[in-house]
Amino acid sequence: MGAVAATFEMAGFRALLELADDALILGHRLSEWCGHAPTLEEDLALANMGLDLLGQARALYAHAGEIEGKGRGEDDLAFLRRERDYVNCLLVERPNGDFAATMARQLYFAAFMHPFWRAIAASSNDATLAGIAAKAEKEMAYHLRHCGEWVIRLGDGTAESARRMQAAVDELHRYTGELFEASPVREKAVADGLLPDPGTVRAEWERTIAMVFSQAGLTAPEVRVPQSGGREGLHGEDMGHLLAEMQFMQRAYPGLTW
Protein backbone atom coordinates (compact mmCIF):
# COMPACT_ATOMS: atom_id res chain seq x y z
CA MET A 1 0.00 0.00 0.00
CA GLY A 2 1.38 3.37 -0.88
CA ALA A 3 0.44 6.97 -0.69
CA VAL A 4 -3.29 6.39 -0.59
CA ALA A 5 -3.04 4.44 2.64
CA ALA A 6 -0.66 7.01 4.11
CA THR A 7 -1.10 7.37 7.82
CA PHE A 8 -2.32 10.50 9.43
CA GLU A 9 1.24 11.22 10.58
CA MET A 10 2.32 11.29 6.95
CA ALA A 11 -0.09 14.10 6.12
CA GLY A 12 2.76 16.40 5.08
CA PHE A 13 4.21 13.82 2.71
CA ARG A 14 0.79 13.14 1.23
CA ALA A 15 -0.05 16.84 0.79
CA LEU A 16 3.25 17.40 -1.08
CA LEU A 17 2.52 14.34 -3.20
CA GLU A 18 -0.82 15.84 -4.31
CA LEU A 19 0.94 19.00 -5.46
CA ALA A 20 3.75 17.03 -7.11
CA ASP A 21 1.47 14.56 -8.90
CA ASP A 22 -0.69 17.38 -10.28
CA ALA A 23 2.41 19.08 -11.68
CA LEU A 24 3.99 15.89 -13.04
CA ILE A 25 0.89 14.55 -14.79
CA LEU A 26 -0.08 17.89 -16.33
CA GLY A 27 3.55 18.52 -17.32
CA HIS A 28 3.60 15.13 -19.03
CA ARG A 29 0.35 15.89 -20.85
CA LEU A 30 1.82 19.17 -22.16
CA SER A 31 4.97 17.35 -23.28
CA GLU A 32 2.76 15.19 -25.53
CA TRP A 33 2.17 18.31 -27.63
CA CYS A 34 5.86 18.64 -28.47
CA GLY A 35 6.11 18.76 -32.27
CA HIS A 36 2.32 18.77 -32.71
CA ALA A 37 1.23 22.28 -31.72
CA PRO A 38 -0.62 24.48 -34.24
CA THR A 39 2.35 26.89 -34.61
CA LEU A 40 6.04 26.88 -33.71
CA GLU A 41 5.54 29.60 -31.08
CA GLU A 42 2.78 27.56 -29.46
CA ASP A 43 4.95 24.45 -29.52
CA LEU A 44 7.58 26.39 -27.58
CA ALA A 45 4.98 27.77 -25.18
CA LEU A 46 3.49 24.35 -24.41
CA ALA A 47 6.93 22.80 -23.96
CA ASN A 48 8.01 25.67 -21.70
CA MET A 49 4.88 25.38 -19.57
CA GLY A 50 5.40 21.61 -19.35
CA LEU A 51 9.00 22.22 -18.28
CA ASP A 52 7.89 24.61 -15.53
CA LEU A 53 5.54 21.94 -14.20
CA LEU A 54 8.12 19.15 -14.37
CA GLY A 55 10.59 21.38 -12.53
CA GLN A 56 8.03 22.07 -9.82
CA ALA A 57 7.29 18.33 -9.59
CA ARG A 58 10.98 17.45 -9.19
CA ALA A 59 11.50 19.87 -6.31
CA LEU A 60 8.28 18.72 -4.65
CA TYR A 61 9.10 15.00 -4.98
CA ALA A 62 12.61 15.52 -3.64
CA HIS A 63 11.20 17.37 -0.63
CA ALA A 64 8.40 14.83 -0.14
CA GLY A 65 11.00 12.05 -0.14
CA GLU A 66 12.96 13.84 2.59
CA ILE A 67 9.82 14.23 4.70
CA GLU A 68 8.89 10.59 4.19
CA GLY A 69 12.38 9.57 5.27
CA LYS A 70 12.37 6.15 3.60
CA GLY A 71 15.08 6.90 1.10
CA ARG A 72 12.76 7.41 -1.85
CA GLY A 73 14.03 10.03 -4.27
CA GLU A 74 12.31 12.01 -7.00
CA ASP A 75 12.60 9.24 -9.61
CA ASP A 76 11.17 6.59 -7.27
CA LEU A 77 8.18 8.76 -6.55
CA ALA A 78 7.64 9.94 -10.11
CA PHE A 79 8.14 6.69 -11.96
CA LEU A 80 7.86 3.68 -9.70
CA ARG A 81 4.45 3.94 -8.07
CA ARG A 82 1.31 2.14 -9.18
CA GLU A 83 -1.69 3.93 -10.60
CA ARG A 84 -3.67 3.69 -7.36
CA ASP A 85 -0.83 5.46 -5.52
CA TYR A 86 -0.99 8.62 -7.66
CA VAL A 87 -3.07 11.30 -5.95
CA ASN A 88 -3.34 13.90 -8.72
CA CYS A 89 -6.72 15.42 -9.42
CA LEU A 90 -8.62 14.08 -12.42
CA LEU A 91 -8.49 17.38 -14.32
CA VAL A 92 -4.75 17.13 -15.03
CA GLU A 93 -4.90 13.59 -16.43
CA ARG A 94 -7.65 14.38 -18.95
CA PRO A 95 -6.37 13.77 -22.49
CA ASN A 96 -5.14 16.74 -24.49
CA GLY A 97 -8.05 16.66 -26.94
CA ASP A 98 -7.86 19.56 -29.38
CA PHE A 99 -5.98 22.80 -28.69
CA ALA A 100 -9.11 24.32 -27.13
CA ALA A 101 -9.38 21.47 -24.61
CA THR A 102 -5.69 21.82 -23.66
CA MET A 103 -6.10 25.58 -23.16
CA ALA A 104 -9.28 25.12 -21.08
CA ARG A 105 -7.60 22.50 -18.88
CA GLN A 106 -4.54 24.74 -18.37
CA LEU A 107 -6.69 27.79 -17.63
CA TYR A 108 -8.72 25.94 -14.99
CA PHE A 109 -5.55 24.63 -13.36
CA ALA A 110 -3.49 27.83 -13.55
CA ALA A 111 -6.39 29.94 -12.26
CA PHE A 112 -6.33 27.68 -9.19
CA MET A 113 -2.60 27.16 -8.67
CA HIS A 114 -1.60 30.79 -9.17
CA PRO A 115 -3.43 32.02 -6.06
CA PHE A 116 -2.83 28.72 -4.23
CA TRP A 117 0.96 28.94 -4.65
CA ARG A 118 0.83 32.57 -3.55
CA ALA A 119 -1.09 31.54 -0.42
CA ILE A 120 1.36 28.70 0.27
CA ALA A 121 4.36 31.02 -0.17
CA ALA A 122 2.80 33.49 2.28
CA SER A 123 1.75 31.05 4.98
CA SER A 124 3.68 27.77 4.91
CA ASN A 125 5.84 27.05 7.93
CA ASP A 126 8.07 24.90 5.70
CA ALA A 127 10.79 27.14 4.20
CA THR A 128 11.56 24.76 1.32
CA LEU A 129 7.91 24.51 0.28
CA ALA A 130 7.54 28.28 0.59
CA GLY A 131 10.55 28.72 -1.70
CA ILE A 132 9.15 26.30 -4.29
CA ALA A 133 5.80 28.09 -4.06
CA ALA A 134 7.26 31.58 -4.52
CA LYS A 135 8.88 30.51 -7.79
CA ALA A 136 5.91 28.44 -9.00
CA GLU A 137 3.51 31.34 -8.42
CA LYS A 138 5.39 33.44 -10.95
CA GLU A 139 5.46 30.61 -13.46
CA MET A 140 1.73 29.99 -13.10
CA ALA A 141 1.06 33.71 -13.67
CA TYR A 142 2.51 33.24 -17.16
CA HIS A 143 0.44 30.08 -17.77
CA LEU A 144 -2.71 31.81 -16.60
CA ARG A 145 -2.23 34.82 -18.84
CA HIS A 146 -1.16 32.81 -21.87
CA CYS A 147 -4.05 30.33 -21.66
CA GLY A 148 -6.60 32.95 -20.58
CA GLU A 149 -5.75 34.97 -23.67
CA TRP A 150 -6.16 31.90 -25.89
CA VAL A 151 -9.51 30.98 -24.33
CA ILE A 152 -10.75 34.53 -24.96
CA ARG A 153 -9.33 34.59 -28.51
CA LEU A 154 -10.91 31.25 -29.41
CA GLY A 155 -14.22 31.81 -27.60
CA ASP A 156 -14.54 35.23 -29.21
CA GLY A 157 -13.16 34.05 -32.58
CA THR A 158 -14.84 32.22 -35.45
CA ALA A 159 -18.01 30.13 -35.18
CA GLU A 160 -15.83 27.00 -35.31
CA SER A 161 -13.33 28.14 -32.66
CA ALA A 162 -16.19 29.28 -30.39
CA ARG A 163 -17.96 25.93 -30.80
CA ARG A 164 -14.80 24.02 -29.91
CA MET A 165 -13.96 26.27 -26.96
CA GLN A 166 -17.46 25.89 -25.52
CA ALA A 167 -17.30 22.11 -26.05
CA ALA A 168 -13.97 21.97 -24.15
CA VAL A 169 -15.40 23.94 -21.24
CA ASP A 170 -18.57 21.80 -21.21
CA GLU A 171 -16.44 18.65 -21.01
CA LEU A 172 -13.89 19.77 -18.40
CA HIS A 173 -15.85 21.97 -15.98
CA ARG A 174 -17.11 18.91 -14.07
CA TYR A 175 -13.53 18.13 -12.95
CA THR A 176 -12.83 21.50 -11.33
CA GLY A 177 -14.66 20.96 -8.02
CA GLU A 178 -12.04 18.41 -7.01
CA LEU A 179 -9.40 21.15 -6.86
CA PHE A 180 -11.03 22.54 -3.72
CA GLU A 181 -12.08 19.31 -2.02
CA ALA A 182 -11.11 18.74 1.56
CA SER A 183 -9.83 15.43 2.89
CA PRO A 184 -8.90 14.40 6.45
CA VAL A 185 -5.23 14.05 5.49
CA ARG A 186 -5.20 17.45 3.83
CA GLU A 187 -6.94 19.02 6.83
CA LYS A 188 -4.20 17.64 9.07
CA ALA A 189 -1.51 19.23 6.86
CA VAL A 190 -3.48 22.49 6.95
CA ALA A 191 -3.76 22.34 10.74
CA ASP A 192 -0.01 21.66 10.95
CA GLY A 193 0.65 24.88 9.02
CA LEU A 194 2.23 23.23 5.99
CA LEU A 195 -0.20 24.76 3.54
CA PRO A 196 -3.52 26.62 3.55
CA ASP A 197 -6.90 25.10 2.74
CA PRO A 198 -7.36 25.16 -1.06
CA GLY A 199 -10.95 26.25 -0.45
CA THR A 200 -9.62 29.68 0.55
CA VAL A 201 -8.72 30.48 -3.08
CA ARG A 202 -12.02 29.28 -4.56
CA ALA A 203 -13.55 32.76 -4.72
CA GLU A 204 -10.54 34.11 -6.63
CA TRP A 205 -10.65 31.13 -9.02
CA GLU A 206 -14.35 31.73 -9.68
CA ARG A 207 -13.74 35.44 -10.35
CA THR A 208 -10.92 34.67 -12.81
CA ILE A 209 -12.96 32.07 -14.71
CA ALA A 210 -16.03 34.33 -14.81
CA MET A 211 -13.93 37.23 -16.13
CA VAL A 212 -12.36 35.10 -18.88
CA PHE A 213 -15.67 33.51 -19.85
CA SER A 214 -17.44 36.85 -20.07
CA GLN A 215 -14.72 38.24 -22.38
CA ALA A 216 -14.72 35.00 -24.38
CA GLY A 217 -18.51 34.79 -24.69
CA LEU A 218 -18.48 31.35 -23.06
CA THR A 219 -21.04 29.92 -20.66
CA ALA A 220 -20.02 27.91 -17.62
CA PRO A 221 -22.04 24.70 -17.82
CA GLU A 222 -24.20 23.49 -14.98
CA VAL A 223 -22.40 20.52 -13.45
CA ARG A 224 -24.87 17.79 -12.53
CA VAL A 225 -22.36 15.05 -11.67
CA PRO A 226 -19.05 16.46 -10.38
CA GLN A 227 -16.14 14.11 -10.99
CA SER A 228 -13.57 13.37 -8.32
CA GLY A 229 -11.63 10.50 -6.79
CA GLY A 230 -8.14 11.28 -8.03
CA ARG A 231 -6.97 12.25 -4.53
CA GLU A 232 -7.94 8.72 -3.40
CA GLY A 233 -6.09 7.14 -6.29
CA LEU A 234 -9.20 6.45 -8.38
CA HIS A 235 -8.31 7.48 -11.91
CA GLY A 236 -9.86 7.38 -15.35
CA GLU A 237 -8.91 4.92 -18.05
CA ASP A 238 -6.63 7.46 -19.73
CA MET A 239 -4.35 7.59 -16.68
CA GLY A 240 -3.20 4.00 -17.26
CA HIS A 241 -2.16 4.82 -20.82
CA LEU A 242 -0.30 7.92 -19.64
CA LEU A 243 1.61 5.98 -16.96
CA ALA A 244 2.45 3.17 -19.36
CA GLU A 245 4.25 5.63 -21.58
CA MET A 246 5.73 7.79 -18.82
CA GLN A 247 7.06 4.87 -16.74
CA PHE A 248 8.26 2.70 -19.61
CA MET A 249 11.98 3.47 -19.38
CA GLN A 250 12.22 3.00 -15.59
CA ARG A 251 10.16 -0.21 -15.76
CA ALA A 252 12.15 -1.66 -18.65
CA TYR A 253 15.56 -0.51 -17.37
CA PRO A 254 15.31 -0.13 -13.57
CA GLY A 255 17.62 2.52 -12.18
CA LEU A 256 18.31 4.00 -15.59
CA THR A 257 19.85 7.49 -15.50
CA TRP A 258 20.76 9.91 -18.25
Binding site: L51, D52, L53, G55, Q56, I132, E139
Partner: peptide, 8 residues
Protein backbone atom coordinates in the same frame (compact mmCIF):
# COMPACT_ATOMS: atom_id res chain seq x y z
CA UNK B 1 19.69 28.75 -6.75
CA UNK B 2 17.75 27.96 -9.97
CA UNK B 3 16.13 30.68 -12.07
CA UNK B 4 13.08 28.68 -13.17
CA UNK B 5 11.81 25.45 -11.54
CA UNK B 6 12.39 23.49 -14.72
CA UNK B 7 15.50 25.30 -15.92
CA UNK B 8 17.47 22.59 -17.74
Amino acid sequence: TPTYSGCP
